[in-house]
Write a protein that binds this DNA or RNA. Sequence first.
DNA 1: CTGTTAGCGCCTTCAT
DNA 2: ATGAAGGCGCTAACAG
Lengths: 377, 377
Amino acid sequence: MRKRLPTQKLTIYEVADEAGVSIASVSRVLHGKDGVSDATRERIRGAMHELGYVPSGAARGLASKRLGVIGLIFPDLDDPSAESGHETLLYSDEVIRGAERAARAQGRAILIAATHSTSARELALSVAGRVDALVVMARSVREADVRMLADRVPTVLLAGGRRLKGTDYVGVDNVGGARAATQHLLEHGFEDIAFMGGPANSPDARARFAGFREALAAAGLEAPDRPEVHGNFTERGGAAAMDELLRLRPRPPRAVVVGNDQMAVGAGAFLAETGLSVPEDVALTGFDDIQLARYVTPPLTTVRQPMRRLGEECVRLLLRRLDDPEAVPQTVELATELVVRQSCGCPADGSELVIDEPAIRSLASGGPAVRPKAPVP
Amino acid sequence: MRKRLPTQKLTIYEVADEAGVSIASVSRVLHGKDGVSDATRERIRGAMHELGYVPSGAARGLASKRLGVIGLIFPDLDDPSAESGHETLLYSDEVIRGAERAARAQGRAILIAATHSTSARELALSVAGRVDALVVMARSVREADVRMLADRVPTVLLAGGRRLKGTDYVGVDNVGGARAATQHLLEHGFEDIAFMGGPANSPDARARFAGFREALAAAGLEAPDRPEVHGNFTERGGAAAMDELLRLRPRPPRAVVVGNDQMAVGAGAFLAETGLSVPEDVALTGFDDIQLARYVTPPLTTVRQPMRRLGEECVRLLLRRLDDPEAVPQTVELATELVVRQSCGCPADGSELVIDEPAIRSLASGGPAVRPKAPVP
DNA sequence: CTGTTAGCGCCTTCAT
DNA sequence: ATGAAGGCGCTAACAG
């Protein structure tokens, strides 16, 4: 590779010069378009390689109106002051991974940005200006702002339950998942079951509570109007909430349906410290099925949420809209499944998987149903 | 917000029109530059808001030569066929998080792309064309290609131990970390210690083996030339490698220094299945200190690597170079620390933290030393 | 304080 | 099969 001392200013013109052609031809081979003889094509390829040419994404985007980038906005739920650094929400990471893969498969990159309460709006705008389409995770951008974004680029809302006209929606069946977990606990014969809610502003957490209530109601049991305690979806929050729950009651509940796995882990640890054992004294279920769930003692019975597939699904919908701007925005709800381990009181042997829902429920608002992928095995 | 039916073609010109000014003024308020009267500034702000204006990142980038985006290229080490989806490398996720925060603090977004063996080169190029600077994780892009990238944008190499002229480097003290873990095992009185290596193409894994050897040598013990067994840094790989190790030897080693935490977890699980108990029969140490390490049974003694800070440090160096193109590329090596839990044979009570290195070692190649941040507490 | 005017690097007809 | 030329939306001097 020839050394170019100036080190910069290496545009399509330099390549064209080097190859002795016009920039139009260079542009053509850049896109693999035909209309270029094999000979010159080779010559141009050689020049590009020799010069170490890297086309400018900005110029390309400006001229073609296609950036080749999909944006992903998620809330920075992590407490910045948490020194441990481990309280992170694996959820976002998994979604990002899924989205990255799906995007890359189509030659697109992913631009990520976490909103941190303040300045969420301007950040969102700056991201929107750099991408072809946008995935907006629940609780990251205010509704009014989402409207604005969706007005500019195809947008999909991820989780949160709120649908906006003109945007796709991807989420999971929170209600069904929580209902299944609660039912399972009921089948164990437990009747005094409490619910540990998530952050007040989390629609998903509320949906899970709704599922909890449905199950209790179906069993003819009385259900409270609201969760007895709330946590912030972190381990620490789960421990604190469990503490509160124990204080609130004369005697511990026989079982607790916890809003997510991280809190369940924290709650379990707190119980252990208190001398109460899981599941003998208090049974527990979680939600998400993070990696940790399998490894805690006892292994956590929980509701699996296909986090990575959520990311994939978002990108898939977006690519579809990008491909056909007339496409009707869709709503996709992925199924959850109950993963039975030991924190619910089940024996350790046959780790059983109960598929909660048969397949994806896909509601094309006015359009034809989409091809649902096979459910997770 | 007024409804604009055409829905598109909303440029700085429309905003200027609406506000009755020239595009220059709009551009000025967009940057918060002064030279605009408060009155017109307000008028312009109003117009932008009313119209729902989102500036084009591409146009901005083209004109200003600053995209406001930092790229992050990492290897897609995950086995795509792994249905579980949990074998993911938390390492990348943590680095990404750290980088995202540091970048956002400066108003920059992060563009991520995972390279999947094939097509790594073209992906890297397309990313390089869209960013102001680049973080390239070890094992994601071939050296020759990195040269090309670094020739175009400021680049920092993350881990892997390979330094390239003109690029910054950020890594951790793998040798010291592994040495500390091995020494600790030696202090337990164990002499028959094996090493479970990582992927053959991982320089970090090799450095850890080197640390292992140093410790043995310092203790006057004989050390092998190469790891007895290798794993691919996954749980499954760790289990397989442990299986192999047991077959290789007449009787199990008294202790094993494992190349990373995930493998250590897998190895531990395998031992348990075999009926061998940790640490009574075989002691274990890991490397990374992933969240899981605290929760497995027994809790894993390991070498903590400040993953998130690695990402932050990368961005910090990049911003510095962006700010001052003449800045001399630096090498930063973050310290690791030994986290003593129970898999090494230590009792469960005082979970002790041994700080391995006093602070960051920062080698400014020819330049003045950088301000080292305080070590992790 | 505000407006004019070149480009930035590439894509894309439209000619040749 | 190739080249010429006009933007894409915005920034950055340079004038007023």
